[in-house]
């Protein structure tokens, strides 16, 4: 049986990928990426670079291609053209979703997606990196070191007192933090976070902003968000997507003066008051 398991592990593995190489200061490269669905160009010759340790916000009207872009980076959708590299060496287009997760890209979904019948602790344990091999899964125990890692993440997401509770009965905001915590258990270099504060109270938004800011530096963080107040509170660099392309990039206050941005996205201008 164990031979079969190791064989299966080998069968699922892709050519060995080394550690991510961000020596040029860029962690994620998208170059000339295009994808269309039934003739509709969801992403049209998109180029985007995310720096190592950077916190970047992506904004854009509905249908601008934000979620499709995340799908391409995480391997859910394969583009028709273009290149997607993680660091200098890792070609993400050659990897599938689990392989991309394992090289260090974590993704938070728009709707909080935690495993509701499991406890907060079990959700974090589930996400723990290094436990993805079958042999590592055949255990009912946690080692001391694993316990410490889980405790550290619990503390970081502010759920230390809720470790034993079922994830399903957490408040909406707590579920969002738990999911971010699950990403952290994967020890990613890049976090893709889709609308983290939708439906949150102002107090929860403040804590989320603080959490994401504290992650930048040691991680690169890409946040897709609609809430302008929240975007202003976290990001120095903002990318505006429109019709599958980068419309503009820069500081939020500069972009708010940019006439093309105002026209396509900020519209009447009251969206960010």
């Amino acid at each position: 049986m164990s031979e079969l398991i190791s064989e299966l592990d080998a069968a699922g593995m892709h050519p060995p990928v080394g550690p991510v190489d961000a020596t040029h200061g860029i962690l994620l490269y998208l170059e000339g990426v295009s994808v269309s669905f039934d003739g509709f160009k969801a992403i049209d010759n998109l180029s985007l670079y995310i720096g190592d340790g950077e916190l970047r916000c992506i904004i854009g009207p509905n249908g601008a291609g934000k979620t499709t872009m995340m799908d391409i980076i995480t391997g859910k959708t394969k583009p028709d053209a273009g290149r997607v590299f993680f660091g200098q060496t890792i070609d993400l287009l050659k990897l599938d979703e689990p392989a991309i997760a394992r090289v260090g890209i974590g993704r938070k979904f728009q709707r909080p997606t935690v495993i509701e019948p499991l406890t907060v602790l079990e959700n974090l344990e589930l996400a723990m990196s290094g436990a993805k091999r079958l042999r590592g899964l055949m255990t009912t125990r946690l080692s001391g070191e694993e316990r410490d890692r889980i405790a550290a993440v619990l503390d970081r997401i502010g759920l230390t007192e809720h470790g034993g509770r079922l994830a399903g009965i957490l408040a909406h905001g707590q579920k969002q933090w738990l999911e971010i915590g699950m990403l952290l258990m994967q020890e990613p270099r890049l976090l893709l976070v889709d609308e983290p504060v939708a439906g949150m109270t102002p107090a929860e938004m403040d804590r989320t902003a603080e959490l994401l800011r504290s992650l930048a530096g040691s991680h690169s963080v890409v946040v897709v968000e609609h809430d302008m107040g929240f975007v202003r509170s976290i990001a120095d660099r903002v990318t505006v997507l429109h019709q599958g392309r980068v419309l503009a990039e820069g500081r939020l206050d500069e972009l708010q003066e940019d006439p093309t941005v105002i026209e396509v996205y900020l519209g009447a201008g009251d969206a960010y008051h």
Partner: peptide, 8 residues
């Protein structure tokens, strides 16, 4: 999907 994006 969650399981897959966690690397399983």
């Amino acid at each position: 999907d969650r399981a897959r994006f966690l690397g399983y």
